[in-house]
Design a protein around this nucleic acid. Structure first.
Lengths: 215, 215
DNA sequence: CGGGGGTTACGTACACCGTACGTACCTTTT
DNA sequence: AAAAGGTACGTACGGTGTACGTAACCCCCG
């Protein structure tokens, strides 16, 4: 009857599956155990507690990123590729991605992306402090974007695209919001993300082209 | 004995207080009721459920932002001021800020900042679509930054400044991370935030200065 | 060929959670 | 005076994370 002997990996996989299907709120030790056809406390032989499990989930999702980094490519293309690679996990595991961005994990799993990014930035000619600054900038942008894109989706609904806020605003109080409502309501996340990446790349360009002065 | 008659405002205030003191995990209806010296179910006369309470908390925190917007100032200064105003709430209510950025609230409370920002951007010469894009860009950056700055602080610790990851990395596997470890470990959030704001302002500058072509 | 000894699975139990429901009081309207 | 409505409260139900004690298994050492 015991098909496979229950392992940390299987538990994490079940958790990810459950999160994707029913949302992060549905995750409970009992639920996961039931999903695996196993007693609740058996999980604790492989995972110290729920928090650690969620960290493991975040780690697993994060380590799924495919980095096909080409050191010979122009640094702008490498930046584009890395940003896109990060974004792809939000497409593959929308709900679980929230865990990755909500919990900053101190584990080594998130270290490889950092290494790649720093190498790229150094290759682009930034010195240490500037490379770190730019990296933080990019991370902030990516995290913030994914947070908006994936929505928090606290409960159900397969991600919820409608924001539903357009109509009820008073044009006298909020003229800009009111007149731009159609634009605010819809959002092509892909295009928006690409726009941000390009904007940041341009910004990095002008930043590197002046180095000092002007302030 | 009944000092004040218990109101939605008092409940929200108690919730914020509790969150700041003991973290978001410590928030429970029973805990809040105890804090107010009141029965648990009395809360439900003023708040439909916990989720609505947390939304109210987010709304209250958000509406505490002080916008001293000067329509005559240069648009770059207005952008700086608005970004800073947003960041100040992260300083005043670090833990509660997580609620604001985690939960996107569709209520009207977050509408005023949007209105102000759009007005500023339009004043800077951006047309509708570009203004919305830039606003989204800025929001993503601010949210991402605050998320890093305040940390998720899921449990205790008065914000936890140490990241503790410097030492254990293999210089052979992660040369960049290893050599830049000191820079990665410490972070002057204020300076980092200001750097990002300036970078984005410059980016907006070059973006408005070309409008079309180059791609 | 015994045994142990460690690992794994499991059940029970406890403290806590959100909240549905019924009830008492107190204030205002009729 | 009576009726109506809102506020506070207690109890109860089904859920949660996990500490603890037990039983089965496998493997290695004698």
């Amino acid at each position: 009857m015991r098909s496979e002997p229950l392992s940390r990996a299987r538990i994490v996989a079940a958790a990810i599956d459950l999160i994707e299907r029913e949302g992060a709120d549905a995750v409970s030790m009992r639920r996961i155990a039931a999903e695996l056809g196993v007693g609740v406390m058996s999980l604790y032989n492989h995972v110290p507690n729920k928090d650690a499990l969620l960290n493991a989930v975040a780690e697993a999702v994060l380590s799924e990123i495919e980095f096909t980094d080409d050191p010979d490519a122009h640094w702008t293309d490498r930046v584009r590729a890395q940003a896109g690679a990060f974004r792809q996990i939000a497409h593959h595991h929308p709900r679980s991605t929230m865990l990755v961005v909500s919990r900053q994990l101190h584990s080594a799993a998130g270290l490889l992306p950092v290494e790649r990014a720093l190498a790229t930035l150094r290759g682009a000619g930034f010195d240490g402090p500037d490379a770190v600054r730019m990296l933080r900038m990019f991370i902030a942008f990516i995290v913030g974007s994914l947070l908006r894109e994936v929505g928090v989706t606290p409960t159900f609904a397969p991600v919820q695209t409608r924001t539903i806020k357009a109509e009820g605003v008073d044009p006298a109080l909020f003229p800009e919001v009111s007149s731009l409502a159609p634009l605010l309501d819809e959002c092509d996340h892909e295009a928006e993300f690409d726009f941000g990446v390009e904007l940041l790349i341009q910004a990095m360009h002008v930043h590197s082209g002046r180095k000092e002065g002007t302030r």
